[in-house]
C-alpha cells in the first residue's frame, strides 16, 4: 500500500480487526491502535521525502501475543534513537516532535527496529495481560 496519510484509516482497520480477534480489554486495543498509528504516520511523513513509496503491515496474533510488522523501503530510520520529550517543560518550551516515538516505546511491550537490505523493519509486540497504562483511567 502507498505510504500516505489518507491510507491510515484502512491500515488501522486491518490491524485493529486483527487485534480484536484476541478479545483483549478495550483500553488495550485503543493503545494498540495508537501505537500502530504512530508507526504508520512516521513512515508516511518521513520515509519518502522525495515522493511516494510503499508500506507493508502484517499482523499475527495468538495466545502468546500480538505481533505487528511494518516495513518500508524509505530512508533509514531508527525510532529507538529518537529522544524522549521533556516532560517537565512548560507550554512555551515543550517541543512539538518526538511524542509519537515516545508513545510507541511506552505502550508496546517490545519494539525492534532494524535495517534489512533497503528496508526498515519495525516489529511491535504486545503481550497478553494488562500493562500499567491500560487501567490508568480510575482517577
Amino acid at each position: 500500500m502507498e505510504a500516505r496519510i489518507e491510507n491510515l484509516p484502512a491500515i488501522l482497520r486491518f490491524a485493529v480487526d486483527c487485534a480484536d480477534r484476541l478479545s483483549w480489554a478495550k483500553n488495550r486495543l485503543a493503545n494498540i491502535e495508537l501505537v500502530i498509528e504512530e508507526a504508520v504516520v512516521n513512515v508516511c511523513k518521513y520515509a519518502y521525502p522525495e515522493g511516494d513509496g510503499a508500506i507493508e503491515v502484517s499482523c499475527h496474533g495468538d495466545q502468546n501475543g500480538l505481533r505487528i510488522r511494518i516495513t518500508d523501503t524509505g530512508q533509514p530510520f531508527d525510532l529507538l534513537s529518537v529522544a524522549d520529550p521533556d516532560m517537565n517543560a512548560d507550554v512555551e518550551e515543550r517541543q512539538i516532535g518526538g511524542l509519537g516515538c515516545f508513545l510507541i516505546r511506552t505502550l508496546a511491550d517490545d519494539v525492534t527496529c532494524r535495517r534489512e537490505g533497503n528496508q526498515n523493519v519495525l516489529e511491535l509486540t504486545f503481550l497478553p495481560g494488562k500493562k500499567k497504562a491500560d487501567h490508568a483511567d480510575g482517577g
Binding site: N27, M87, D90, V91, F102, L107
Partner: peptide, 17 residues
C-alpha cells in the same frame, strides 16, 4: 476519560494543562 486520559497522562499533557 479512558484512553484519551491515558495518553494525556503518559505524554505529560496532564500536568501541562
Amino acid at each position: 476519560k479512558g484512553p484519551v486520559k491515558d495518553v494525556f497522562e503518559i505524554s505529560g499533557f496532564g500536568s501541562l494543562f
